[in-house]
């Protein structure tokens, strides 16, 4: 069960959770609505940077006050998520660049940025 908190604190925790969830949801909806892979790669980072950070911060505040001691597990989760997501996204982006170049959707030169790609399944 949820423990009883002072009103201002429960409002603070609620605001953190709600704002974080809103940012994460907006990122996930962006994954659906944006039209190109290189645009979509920006969407999930909203959930992993600020969205996740706010939810984890709210959780840390809540547990620290209800357990009467410092609860900092959330810092470890936040570190794992914020450090690992960029690594996976970079790998994915490099794989996509590699595939795009192999498929010939490049401008001039091997290192130039890929052109707009037709959205067909492979």
């Amino acid at each position: 069960m949820i423990a009883d908190l002072p009103l201002w604190l429960s409002i603070l925790v609620s605001a953190g959770v709600l704002a974080g969830a809103l940012l994460t949801m907006a990122g996930c909806l962006g994954l659906v609505r944006l039209r190109d892979f290189y645009l979509r790669i920006h969407a999930p980072t909203m959930g992993t940077s600020m969205g996740g950070g706010l939810i984890l911060l709210a959780s840390a505040i809540y547990f620290t006050l209800t357990q009467q001691r410092l609860v900092v597990h959330e810092i470890a989760i936040f570190l794992f998520v914020t450090v690992t997501t960029p690594v996976t996204l970079m790998l994915l982006a490099r794989a996509t660049l590699f595939r795009d170049r192999a498929a010939g959707f490049t401008a001039t030169g091997p290192d130039a940025a890929p052109k707009e790609r037709p959205e067909v399944a492979d």
Partner: peptide, 26 residues
């Protein structure tokens, strides 16, 4: 439509599931 889109979505799915578990914990 591409394989990389699916993997990107899977990665985002993992993160959202993680956050859902944290809210469940509260």
């Amino acid at each position: 439509p591409h394989a990389q889109d699916r993997i990107l979505a899977l990665d985002a799915l993992y993160v959202v599931a993680l956050l859902l578990l944290v809210t469940l914990g509260i």
